[in-house]
């Protein structure tokens, strides 16, 4: 054994000589390298990506042939559109399921491995730790999204798809990945076990994706039945407007519905950002401007992402312990 020499044991936080990186940069780089190395090391990441692309290519071919068959009766119909819509819907579903599963273990996993305390006693800020973990977890999801770009490009060649549609689709995919990723992160910081965090994250993800459209459809049908049954007592324009905007907003929180509505608007040659609806509250109520559903979804998803990220920071604080950990005495 040899003794540690004074010159190699650098003083903490010392500013390195000119030309060397700053301590802050070293911390960020080290944290990111560790997280990305953990995600990408070994054959797993490569194998998953390969099989994902193979599956996606097969799925694209299937849609292509189905679209070709249906287009046989009407040769003017471009077959690029169904290929594009099928691929984007598939990727959106994948993001909804993959993003929370990738982030549900980032903090709870550290606690389970009993490495969290080691991290917390370093000068790494909680913000850096959580952000690096989120970035590394989502980087792989982003990689899966971007890797499918050549397949999406095929739909452009096949016709019927505008580049703006592809851009909007990517924007919504990234926003979805961020939203569902931070939901997983939040539960990971709150719950001690990764399995519990993943289960809760999936539950939370199903709220906008599955529960919201069902509740909204049921609620509006019920409301419509009530309103149509009481002709003598028509709702006031204010109530009608409130129902209209609230319904539109709720439906736009679902990425599939928001995407579908956006496609319908593009199909009717309306603006990508705003569109008009004539007489939405009965005859004579005029024309109203409505924001594009994809904007509502993306902005809401980004705001929710910031909220869940900040909540994760609060829950991940070691002295708070996070949820169930609070109030547990140390061993001795």
């Amino acid at each position: 054994m040899t003794a540690m020499t004074a010159d190699t044991a650098a003083s903490p936080g010392a500013t390195p000589p000119g030309g060397e990186e700053s301590p802050r940069w070293n911390r960020a780089q080290g944290m990111l390298a560790k997280e990305l190395r953990g995600r990408m090391r070994g054959p797993r990441a490569f194998v998953v990506l390969s099989f994902y692309l193979l599956f996606l290519a097969g799925f694209t071919l299937l849609i292509y042939f189905l679209a070709k068959l249906s287009a046989a009766s009407d040769p003017t119909t471009p077959i690029g559109k169904p290929v594009f819509l099928g691929l984007v819907a598939f990727q959106l579903g994948l993001v909804c399921f993959l993003a929370p599963s990738f982030t549900a273990g980032v903090i709870s996993g550290e606690r389970e491995r009993q490495t969290y305390d080691l991290l917390m006693t370093t000068p790494l800020s909680l913000m850096l730790i959580v952000a690096a973990k989120l970035f590394a977890a989502l980087a792989y999801v982003f990689l899966l999204i971007i890797a499918a770009l050549p397949l999406l490009a095929i739909s452009l060649f096949l016709g019927g798809v505008a580049p703006e549609e592809v851009a909007i689709a990517f924007l919504m995919l990234f926003a979805s990945a961020l939203l569902f990723g931070t939901i997983g992160l939040c539960f990971s910081a709150w719950v001690r076990s990764t399995i519990g965090a993943a289960a809760l994250a999936y539950g939370a993800m199903l709220v906008p994706v599955v529960a919201l459209p069902i509740v909204a459809a049921t609620g509006f049908s019920f409301l419509a039945a009530i309103l149509s049954g009481s002709n003598s007592n028509n709702p006031s324009p204010t109530v009608s407007a409130a129902i209209f905007y609230l319904g539109g907003f709720i439906l736009s929180l679902n990425p599939f519905i928001a995407g579908g509505l956006t496609e319908a608007i593009i199909y009717s040659n309306e603006s990508l950002f705003f569109f008009t609806i004539s007489n939405p509250f009965g005859s004579g109520s005029g024309t109203v401007f409505v924001i594009g559903p994809w904007i509502i979804y993306t902005v809401t998803a980004l705001i929710a992402t910031v909220f869940f990220f900040l909540l994760s920071l609060r829950l991940a604080r070691p002295t708070r312990g996070g949820g169930r950990r609070r109030g547990t005495p140390a061993q001795s």
Binding site: G13, A14, R27, R113, T115
Partner: peptide, 22 residues
């Protein structure tokens, strides 16, 4: 305490050294 099993020994120390800004 736990260790990061998917890391090499030098990487483990390198990560913590970087965490202190070295």
């Amino acid at each position: 305490f736990g260790v990061y099993d998917n890391m090499k020994v030098w990487e483990y120390l390198d990560f913590f050294a970087s965490a202190y800004g070295l």
